[in-house]
Nucleic acid binder design. Structure first.
Lengths: 140, 140
DNA sequence: TATTGTTATACTCTATAACTATA
DNA sequence: TATAGTTATAGAGTATAACAATA
């Protein structure tokens, strides 16, 4: 594949993301979570308990979609919704211990997919890539 | 946002890709192409004429979806389908001059979105990011 | 009045299966 | 018989609008 240097990074990012979650969902066994569910669990693990609105904002998704995603995860027992006592309109979403467990095993799956996807990069280059991406994401 | 160092790069990539194309489609005026159409045009520009099957393979999309995408682009006059004379089952897809023009103006839109998205990175870091991503994508 | 979350609904994106025309 | 592309269709993914509960 020869995208060459178009000067445009975003199509490359988009392509890599697509390849990644396609590989993840393709490697899923019955009962495994989807890449969308993984994204939510990852966020909860990294940020701690969140209101649904926060999740909505971070993913740039409509609130109604987040409702559906959380319904799935709650039925699986991976997250919990509880009322915020200081503002009873809000639901605080937290990761359950079961959710943390599933997250870890999914990360194991993800690690091997990353290995395949990033095989052409040295370990140092992978760290650089991770650092740069983290810097972008945390700056927003 | 604090994804922190989970050691997992793919969720970051996924997040950035989503933010990028959302911004692109949000900045679209009536008549502008979508991010999916952009991806196809970019591929044709980088790789030259391709059979539909090649496009299908590169994007990891089902062939039936590529048909629809190309129908859109052909109606807009941005690509052309012609029979391969050596194998009349194949359609060779090529970028038209109009398509190249639209591609350029879309890249201009994309450039300003990239600037916003990558503002926390130095120019050298952006080049590094682009180089690493290119290396991954070209190695597949 | 404004905001959080929900439901109902429609539109976009993607995959599967059956078909055609070539090979 | 196998392959490139197409059509029809169903299933995810996503957005919009109207609503209930709370602020």
């Amino acid at each position: 594949m020869a995208w060459s240097r178009s000067g445009r990074t975003l199509p490359l990012v988009s392509y890599l993301a697509r390849a990644g979650w396609r590989a993840l969902d393709a490697s899923a066994q019955p009962g495994d979570i989807t890449h969308r569910q993984l994204l939510v669990l990852t966020l909860l693990k990294e940020r701690g308990d969140l209101a649904q609105q926060d999740i909505t904002h971070v993913f740039g998704l409509d609130a109604s979609n987040v409702v559906g995603l959380l319904n799935e995860l709650e039925e699986l027992g991976l997250v919990l919704r509880r009322r915020d006592h200081t503002d009873r309109r809000r639901h605080i979403v937290e990761l359950t211990s079961g959710g943390a467990l599933v997250l870890d095993s999914t990360f194991a799956r993800l690690a091997s997919i990353e290995d395949e996807l990033l095989f052409s990069l040295s370990m140092q280059e992978r760290e650089t890539l991770h650092r740069l991406l983290l810097q972008i994401v945390t700056s927003r």
